[in-house]
Design a protein around this nucleic acid. Sequence first.
DNA 1: TACGTCAAGTCCTATATAGGAATATCATGC
DNA 2: GCATGATATTCCTATATAGGACTTGACGTA
Lengths: 263, 263
Amino acid sequence: MKKTILREVANTGGPAKAKHQRISEEILTAIEDGRWLPGDRLPAEDQLAAEMGASLGTVQRALRSLVQMGVVERHHGRGTFVSGARAQEGQLKHFRFLAEGGTRLLPVYFKIVSVETTRESGPWSQFFGTPDGEYVHIHRLVSVNDEFEVFSEIYLPADRFSDLARMSQSTLNGVSFRDMLAERFNAPTLNTRQTMACQPLPPRVARQLDVPPGQYGIVWSICGLSYRDTPITWQRIFVPPSDRVIEIVPMAQHGQTDFGEAG
Amino acid sequence: MKKTILREVANTGGPAKAKHQRISEEILTAIEDGRWLPGDRLPAEDQLAAEMGASLGTVQRALRSLVQMGVVERHHGRGTFVSGARAQEGQLKHFRFLAEGGTRLLPVYFKIVSVETTRESGPWSQFFGTPDGEYVHIHRLVSVNDEFEVFSEIYLPADRFSDLARMSQSTLNGVSFRDMLAERFNAPTLNTRQTMACQPLPPRVARQLDVPPGQYGIVWSICGLSYRDTPITWQRIFVPPSDRVIEIVPMAQHGQTDFGEAG
DNA sequence: TACGTCAAGTCCTATATAGGAATATCATGC
DNA sequence: GCATGATATTCCTATATAGGACTTGACGTA
């Protein structure tokens, strides 16, 4: 016998939402809470419909909207699965490095420089909404095709990600944070806010990148949001001058739309 | 009596597509061809359903996918309208300039520096797929809050946009190209590809921006795509060093999704 | 004129139902 | 063991139908 994970949706207070929206929310909450984990298969459409007291079409519409948010994936004949883990593999990252032509992708390697916890405040405290919070602060050197490097620093809220500080640097080396946060912390990056500016690189960064002190570079901020736009990562990438071009990849249109293939 | 603009959709050759997709395509083609213009109201759902020999639900699904592409807008009780023109107003642009805090938006003003047609080839010829094509080439100075400036150059295919070169500079000054292309050329920018690099600013640009020759800056490329990913603009923005931060706005999630408000 | 009422037009939600298509499972035969 | 085929599971498409909600404009009244 199968345990019931969802509860029937009712329209309790607040502005009346459509049933398909309430169903989306309910399923999203279940995934967010870890009642289903990345890779898990959800009950079949008709079972969901029965469980939630809705018709098939309504459940389908709810599921389609979750596909679009990048939260679940559906496969004809197989089932509906929670995204993350494997699912992330073919998916979009924040950026890619391109060879001159613009077509070939260049391989990247992440190397951990330092991992620490801190109570330092800054723009990230505003982003996370925790002025006195504790953060995990990680510096990484990103090597592109063994020929040029960018420097990255990430802040994450310690209350949720303090395990990161306890992991050995060797397990963190080389891995993509987006994938790891999705797989190990049930915190997939579903959306981002990005800004950029051209500014002198901070001395420490210039040293790491082996460029002259005071060298100008791009300071590129990427704020990562997960389920329900929960802030999870505040990242700053320092890009020194180079012929190499960085493609900015928006986080949008997961899976495929009703119209056809996603861009 | 109303003229019939659409033809009934049939599945002629090629891979079988779903009916709601064929309907989307048919409506999109009509809009692309100018059979309906920006601001026009489409026939009601049930009329469309009758015209195209489909049921209401199927047409609704087709229209929802067009909303998502940013091609049409639907308003409860009023109708379904072709996007563009007025519709663009509240919509996302490619970028915004932010005050330090990150909340306040800064006003911008576009000033035309030069407009010419050219057969010069470059990355844009590859983007447009016209190696020997003629292009309209426009330089603009973008002034942000009267305190700092960025320089922009745009290439557009002359076969479609040669009228631009004939417009007076005074009519081009101050206007957003995205809006104008959508309104006057039925060429709304529905998607973009973006890249960036930190490089020395070209001499001409440095002169215009009044920064020392050889000054590093951000070279930011934005390629604009319209209906069916037709390339329409190849733009390069030169950003000199500044405290001002530029927010990168992805072109995504038009209107609103099934889940709720769009980000 | 100002205001309320009413009706028509339009989109929005939701249901029940039917059949088709892709995939997985399992029994069978060799 | 291995291919084959039947069956069940699951998602996908599509229809017909019903009622609700929002907008607009016309009409009548004060």
